[in-house]
Amino acid sequence: MKEVPAKIEHNNAWIVIKLGIGEDRIALPAPVNKEVLFKTVVDVEEKKNILIITDKTNVEVVYKILSVDKVLAVLKKMILSSCNAYRLMAYFMSPAIKGGVMIKDAQWEKGSVVVVHSGIWFVSPTKQVCVPVNDVAGIELTKREVQGKPTDVVRIDHLESGEVVSSMVLCPLSTLQVLFNFLKETTKSMDMKGTELDGVDQQVAMLIYSGMDSHAIENMLNIPHKQLDAIYDKILKLGLAEVATIRREVQLTTKGVRYISDATKSQTN
C-alpha cells in the first residue's frame, strides 16, 4: 500500500495523515483508524481540493479528504472504477458547448460515465469531470454528427461557475436510453410542465440567462419595472432563479437638494 500525505476531516477539524492507497481500498490511520473498500463507496463528490467519499457498509459514513490535485486524481480514478455505482463505457465530450459557444477543439474521449448519488462523473485516463446532479440544467437524447454521420448522443447541460456548459455522451443507443432514463429519474424534481410561464415571462427568463440586468430587460421588452418585479416574483417562486443583488431607487431629501444646489452654485461661481 502506497502512502501519501493528505488531510482528513475528523471531529470537525482537519488533521494531517499518511493516507494509504491500495488496489481495492484506502487506509485512514489513527485517529480515524478505518479502511474503506472502493466497492462499498456509494458516492463521490469533489469540492475544490476536497474529495467527499460516502462509504456504506451498514451505515453511511462520509469522509472528507483534502490533498493536492495529483493525489486526488489517482484516488478519483481508482474509486470511480470500482465503487458501487451505475457505470457504462462510453465516449464523452466535456465540455462540448460553453455559454452557447461550440468548443472548437473539443474531442471525444474514451472512458466511462459513472453515475453516483450526487452526480455524474466522466472518467478517462487523463480526466475526471464531475457534474453534480443539482447542477444539471437539462438532459436530452439528441443527434450529433460523428464521423460524418448523424449519431444518437445524450446531451447534458449543466452549470459550472454560473456558466451553462453542455457535455455529450456517445455509446450504443440501448445504453444511451438507459442512461437518459436514469438521469431523467434522478433529476425529476427539477422537471416542469412548461406552462408555468407565459410569453413575456419566458422572454424575461431568457434575458436573465443571457446576462441582461433589470434595466436592460425593461428597455428591451418595453415593460415598466412593476411588471418586471411581478415576473421576477413568479420566477423566484417557481425556483427558477435566486436573488443576486437588490438595488434601490432613492430620491433626494431637502438636505440633499440644498447640498446639490450649493454645489452647483460653487461650480458656476
Partner: peptide, 16 residues
C-alpha cells in the same frame, strides 16, 4: 467562422 447555440450567454458571445 464560428458557431453559437441559442440560448447563449453574453460573455461567451462576445468572446466568440
Amino acid at each position: 467562422k464560428g458557431y453559437i447555440v441559442k440560448p447563449f450567454q453574453a460573455p461567451k458571445v462576445l468572446e466568440e
